[in-house]
Amino acid sequence: MRGAAGAITDVPGIEVGHFTDTRRPTGCSVVIAREGAVAGVDVRGAAPGTRETDLLSPTNLVERVHGILLSGGSAWGLAAADGVVRWLEEQKVGMPVGPALLPIVPGAVLFDLMVGDSSIRPDAQAGYAACASASSRAPAEGNVGAGAGAAVGKIFGIGRAMKGGIGTASVTVDGVTVGALIACNALGDVIDPDTARPIAGARTADGSALADTRRALLRGEAPKPLLKGTNTTIGVIATDAVLTKVQASRLATVGHDGLARSINPVHTMSDGDALFALATGRSGRNPGMMLLGTMAAEVVAMAVVRAVRAAQGITAGNLHLPGARDLDRG
Rank of each mutant, 00 (worst) to 15 (best):
T59R: 15
R309W: 08
V176P: 01
L78I: 00
I14Q: 04
V173D: 10
P12Y: 05
A296T: 07
A108Y: 01
A211E: 12
G258T: 08
T26V: 00
E89R: 14
I191R: 06
I234P: 03
D194N: 12
A202L: 01
R64M: 12
L69S: 05
N264T: 15
N185M: 07
A307D: 06
P139T: 01
I155T: 09
R44L: 09
S133T: 13
G179A: 00
M1K: 12
R121Y: 15
L278K: 03
P96S: 09
D189T: 08
N264S: 14
D326V: 13
P25S: 04
L102N: 12
L226K: 15
G293K: 04
A148M: 07
A301M: 02
V190N: 08
L110Q: 05
M295Q: 07
E298R: 13
V299M: 00
V105R: 02
V178A: 02
R306T: 09
A100L: 14
A132M: 10
G49Y: 02
T195Y: 10
V299N: 00
E35D: 15
L101H: 07
L278G: 04
E90T: 12
V304S: 03
T9E: 02
T172L: 00
S118M: 14
D112N: 04
R34L: 03
T294P: 11
S136Y: 06
S249G: 14
R24K: 11
K154Y: 02
R197P: 06
L275H: 02
A277D: 04
R197Y: 11
I158L: 09
P96A: 11
M114G: 10
T294C: 14
L78C: 06
G27T: 00
W87C: 15
L226A: 11
P193L: 06
F19K: 01
T230R: 13
D194L: 15
V190H: 09
L187E: 12
G201K: 00
G281D: 09
G72K: 00
P193T: 05
A316H: 05
G281Y: 03
N185V: 06
R329P: 13
P193A: 07
S262A: 15
W87L: 11
M289H: 10
S208M: 11
